[in-house]
């Protein structure tokens, strides 16, 4: 091998790959740690449970990766999931809509909500953090108001088995998540739309000058998280057979933690879908393992807080060393 090809091969191992490899190693270490220190962690039943919770988070984490890459954020996803599920159940129970048309309406709602956040960001110049913070409060509050804090149950075995159960030994939601992963992974790597997310995050001013419709790219990313929040809301209903205003409490935290642990920079431009997938499994595994250790659920949140902080520290060190963090937007 000549020196030149050696040099070239060395460059092929990019920062993002390094992060993914590191995360994979961390994942295996955590897996071993919990397996050897608890009795019931290393069981098929428990792995199914980890996969299930990673899948709900993953479905929103993939579009969230694009949102963060374009230098935006959506913190309304938890309440958005709760309201979407509730809205779905309300349409069925109170207004006699069919399951199919209720799902269609809720999905349309998700798209419109994302569009609203996007328009507020691009036309009214309201930071997405503020808009989604407002929605975070409003959606949860309205959900509680409408239901007076009580769950609304539905009973439909077919719906439950189809979307809340298992197929071929894996939870249905995991299959859906894997399908979504493939689509998002492919889009991020091989399509113009995917490239545009990275370009807008890398240098918004340049992207605009070159002729990319920056506003449309950002709106599309934000429609992604809201749309998938609506889908996850429906899938949650399938799992628990009810709509509940308190559902998906703190889910926005899990989603953003998974994305950031997966190597996506909060400042945009950097991130991969593979990293996000690993991040989802990592966060789900830690939460699950801590329960097996018998740690109080409230303390569980403390540990997650520490993990997200450490992830950002590692992440920003890696990116700063590679001289990233592109130009600021005008």
């Amino acid at each position: 091998m000549t020196e030149q090809t050696l040099e070239k091969n060395k460059k092929k191992i990019k920062i993002s790959n390094l992060h993914e490899i590191g995360l994979l190693i961390a994942l295996i270490l955590v897996l071993l740690l919990f397996s050897f220190t608890t009795e019931n962690f290393f069981t098929q039943r428990n792995f199914t449970s980890i996969l299930r919770s990673a899948s709900y988070v993953g479905l929103i984490a993939f579009p969230m990766t694009f949102v963060l890459i374009t230098r935006e954020i959506d913190i309304s996803v938890g309440p958005s999931v709760a309201w979407s599920g509730l809205f779905f159940v309300i349409l069925i129970k109170w207004y006699d809509f069919s399951y199919f048309s209720s799902a269609a309406i809720v999905i349309l709602w998700g798209i419109l909500l994302g569009y609203f956040i996007g328009i507020a960001r691009t036309k009214l110049f309201i930071p997405t953090f503020i808009t989604t913070l407002a929605l975070w409060s409003a959606l949860r509050g309205y959900s509680l108001f409408v239901t007076e804090g009580r769950p609304i149950a539905i009973s439909n075995k077919d719906f439950r088995y189809l979307f809340g159960g298992d197929i071929l030994g894996l939870p249905t939601v995991t299959w859906i998540m894997l399908g979504a992963f493939l689509v998002f992974w492919f889009a991020s790597k091989y399509t113009v739309t995917g490239t545009n997310f990275y370009a807008v995050g890398g240098n918004p001013k340049a992207a605009r000058n070159i002729g990319i419709n920056v506003d449309r790219v950002k709106i599309l990313a934000l429609v992604g998280t809201s749309l998938f929040s609506a889908i996850v809301g429906i899938l949650f209903v399938a799992r628990v057979s009810s709509g509940n205003a308190n559902l998906a409490d703190g889910m926005e935290f899990d989603v953003i933690a998974a994305v950031v642990v997966g190597g996506t920079a909060l400042g945009g431009a950097v991130g991969t879908m593979t990293g996000t997938l690993l991040g989802c499994v990592f966060i789900a595994m830690i939460s699950n393992g801590l329960i097996h250790w018998g740690i109080d659920p409230d303390l569980n949140k403390v540990v997650k807080g520490i993990i997200i902080f450490l992830a950002v520290v590692i992440n920003s060190n890696v990116t700063f060393k590679s001289n990233s963090g592109g130009p600021k937007e005008d």
Partner: peptide, 8 residues
Amino acid sequence: DLALCDNL
């Protein structure tokens, strides 16, 4: 400023 995207 060259209008380049550093991450691409």
